[in-house]
Every structure is written in structure tokens, then in C-alpha cells.
Design a protein around this nucleic acid. Structure first.
Lengths: 212, 212
DNA sequence: ATATATACCATACATTTGTATGGTAATTTA
DNA sequence: TAAATTACCATACAAATGTATGGTATATAT
């Protein structure tokens, strides 16, 4: 509509720079300066970076606030959604296999700033429906927390992953579904093929276009 | 107003500066510089700001990255949660009044980066429970979208706010609860005290400590 | 009474930062 | 073939930035 035709394809170098900017925003909380980008990629001056940034801006992927340090805004998906890898699907009902690589990406709101080592899992199954977690929801898992009784955790059990409520009972660990259709999983103390992956600290559900 | 002297508590001025930093991070995506803070509060130089920042850093509320522009890190809640104002409570059941100021803050994951003009509402009531939105959930409202039939919207009706499913039927707009206990609200075409606030694009629920 | 925290001001300075201009070279597009 | 685009380089500069020092004044704590 507006005379300028936007070429949306970006080069590999531009892609790498964009990824670096996103990574810095996510991990450090602030976008990088030209100098920081140049240092990261080994450029000897900032002009090279500036040209790549202008290219990215022309293609509509970022917006540069003039004269503002670190003034790089992401315009991905109308500035609102950022693709995040979903590293696996996790059974709220019966265990499902975790895939070695990310199975998918989900468009989390740019709200969805993940801290360094947290990750996302998509829930399959309905065993947690009484905890208001449903099939298709994205759970945010923090691997740095020790689970307390009653919290919902993600755990790996024989190369499969589950999301269930956690209870420690003496020597044993009990993983309980909220849904009475599923029986608790009881893990003995010295069972080796079991590992708590992290604590579910949040649930996100996109309301997309679908009705409900 | 000069408060009670206490080493660990922060003063009102420090609180205001902290709020401004959080707001800038949330709204603009980047923390402010000393100069920007000074301009906002009417200080004539940056040294005043620097002293307040040092006070905040001494009290553990922020961390200052030396020589890094905009290098203000929030250390709230282990860097993971950021308080966001909840501008009102919204009835999924019957309308509730919107308060002139933020009624509360909710600790969204720092994941929770909101775009400039989107906002959060906490849902009260159970009229949307069949859409899996429950009392206490935080809905993310994008005011820049035009609602389509079947989408869940936030609307203001005579100074109260509701979250309901939207249907346009000829001249009328129908706001439907998922829960059959509540009757649809029907708005005539030229009814002036009605306004669509935005489309609910996501739901976030923190899993806190509680077992629920 | 003395030390400390708060709350502003002014001045100063070495770096950093965004930005511009101009150059070389390879590649892609029209 | 000509014109862009991409991908680097070097140099330059005004403005912005973090930071420090020192001053004045008030309020609080020991």
C-alpha cells in the first residue's frame, strides 16, 4: 500500500545479529549497544553494525530510536510475540517422550521474557485439569527451584516427562495427578531413572483466534 | 514527605525512582539513563539521581553495572518477577467497578514484558470458567485489536468492566458468559456508556506457593 | 554531640554512544 | 551491463553517559 516494498528476507548475518539482540534483551534485560554487537561478532568498528541495524530496521524487524543509547526495539510479530522454543511435550496424563531438539516454537507474548535457564513445555493430556492446566497450555519451568510439597513440578521418568503435583513422603516421592482418573506415580528412594526437572512457576495460554 | 528513618526501608523518593525504572523497563523495554530519570523528576543534574541509585543498590533492590549505559538491573524476587500494576478488577461474572488508580500489583514473570499500551486485569468471578479463565487469573488485554466474533474481550459498561465473549449481531453487540448461570449482556447500537477496551490475548496464572 | 542517611545543587572529565562520510570488494538484482 | 545490496573497513565528532568530588541543609540514631 505504501510505495515502499519491504523485503522481508534477511541474510544470515542479519539473522545472527537479530538473534544476539533478542538474546541480550532476554538474558541481560537490555539491548546491546553498537559497540557490544561489534565486539561480539569481532567487528573492528561500529559502522558495520550500524549498517546491519539499518538493514534490519528497513526490513521492519527492529526499530531504532534515534540518539537513544540501546534504543533497539523489537518489532517481531507486531512487537508483541516472540518465538520461544518448546523443548518437549509433557504429559499431564501419561508420560510422553521428550524430543532431543525443540519440537516447536510457541509465540509467547513479549511478556514472555524467560530468565536464562528456564524453559517451556507444552502440556498434553488432562490429568491436571483440576489444577486448571489444560492440554495445549504452556508451562514455564524454573529448573533452579527445589520443589516443595504440593507444588507442580516437571519430572523425567525413564526418558519421558510428566507434569504433576509433587509430594515427598519419607523416603518416597509421590507424583499426583489432580484428575482422579490417573493414579499417583510413586518413586522409591534409590530409583535412578527419575529426576525432577524443575518447578512449574506459571502457565500461559494464548487466546489466539480460536473461541475458547 | 519525610518518612520514618529506617535503614532497610526505602524512602518515598527512592520508591518513586524504582517505580519509574520498572515502568521504563516494562513500557520502553530499556531501563532509563541517569539523565532521563533526572528529567522525569525535574532534577537539574544527574548526580542526584546517581545518589538515589546508589541508595537503592545498597538496599539490594537494583544492581548497577559499572560503566554500562542503562545498566540498571532489577533484583526484585531473584530477578524473576516484576511488579505490574493491575489497573482494575474485572468481573467475569457481574461487573465490578474499575478503580481510578492501580488497585494492586501482580508479580508477573520478568517474562512479563508488556507492550506499551497493553495492560493487565485480574479476573474476579467465575462466569468464564468454561473458557478456563478463573478468578484470580491475570488477563492480558491488547487495546489495539478489533474484536472478532467469539473472541474474549474486556469492555467498560457504565464505569464497570467486564470480561466476556464478544458477538456482533447486526446492530447489537452481545457479551456472553461461558457460564450459563449468567445471562448475556446485550448492547444497543447507540448506547454511549459502553466501550470495548480490548481483546484478551492471553491468560497468565502464577503458580506461586499455593497448591492450586 | 557526633556520626550517618537523605536530598538536593554545581562542576568536571574520560568514555561511550549514535551517527555520518567515504572507501573497497563481492554478490545479487533489474 | 548497470544498479543495488551486502559486508566489511577507517576516521571523525557532537552529544550523551557514568562517575567523582565537593557543597548546603535537614532529619535520625547512638
Amino acid at each position: 500500500m505504501y510505495g515502499i516494498y519491504m523485503n522481508r528476507t534477511i541474510t544470515e548475518i542479519q539473522r545472527n545479529i537479530l538473534d544476539f539482540i533478542i538474546g541480550e534483551k532476554v538474558d541481560r534485560g537490555i539491548p546491546p549497544t553498537r559497540a557490544e554487537i561489534a565486539a561480539h561478532f569481532g567487528y573492528k568498528n561500529r559502522s558495520t553494525v550500524q549498517q546491519h541495524l539499518k538493514a534490519l530496521a528497513n526490513k521492519g524487524l527492529i526499530r531504532l530510536s534515534r540518539k537513544i543509547s540501546r534504543g533497539i526495539e523489537l518489532t517481531l510479530e507486531e512487537k508483541f510475540f516472540i518465538p520461544r522454543p518448546v523443548i518437549g511435550e509433557v504429559a499431564a496424563g501419561n508420560p510422553l517422550t521428550i524430543y532431543p531438539d525443540a519440537i516447536d516454537t510457541v509465540e509467547l507474548p513479549s511478556i514472555a521474557r524467560m530468565p536464562g535457564d528456564s524453559f517451556l513445555l507444552r502440556v498434553k493430556g488432562d490429568s491436571l485439569k483440576d489444577a486448571f492446566i489444560f492440554s495445549g497450555d504452556i508451562v514455564i519451568v524454573n529448573p533452579n527451584l527445589d520443589p516443595r510439597n504440593g507444588q507442580i513440578v516437571a519430572a523425567v521418568l525413564e526418558d519421558a516427562a510428566v507434569v504433576k503435583r509433587f509430594y515427598r513422603k519419607g523416603d518416597k516421592i509421590e507424583l499426583v495427578s489432580e484428575n482422579p482418573d490417573y493414579k499417583p506415580i510413586i518413586i522409591e528412594r534409590n530409583y535412578s531413572k527419575f529426576k525432577i526437572v524443575g518447578v512449574v512457576i506459571g502457565v500461559y495460554r494464548s487466546m489466539g483466534n480460536k473461541a475458547g
